[in-house]
Amino acid sequence: MTSPAFLAMREKVLAAIEANPAVGPGSPAMLERMNDPARDCGFEELGFDSLARMEFCIFLETEFGITLTSGEVETRPSINAMAAYLAEASAAG
């Protein structure tokens, strides 16, 4: 799970979390975990609710042209799960 495509998508997911107006800033320990691809971090732990999921999707769409539904976020509820999903979708074209 450290392919360049995965890591690139992970960066995008992190950016979408950082910019999310419906999610508060994480603690230093949380940020450390988020930034380590070897570890994972669940969206629920980050305080994601339905509004945060919507904002997450909107950010990915406006910044990177990635269309995503809130439902897809609910079913890939962590940074790594989401990054893997997006990398796979991107490879499938």
């Binding site: 919507m54 999707c57 909107i58 769409e61 406006t62 269309t67 995503l68 539904t69």
Partner: peptide, 12 residues
């Protein structure tokens, strides 16, 4: 609006 197939109109 930026037209989105998922969200409708994303205001910009």
């Amino acid at each position: 609006p930026m037209r989105s197939p998922v969200h409708g109109d994303i205001p910009m």
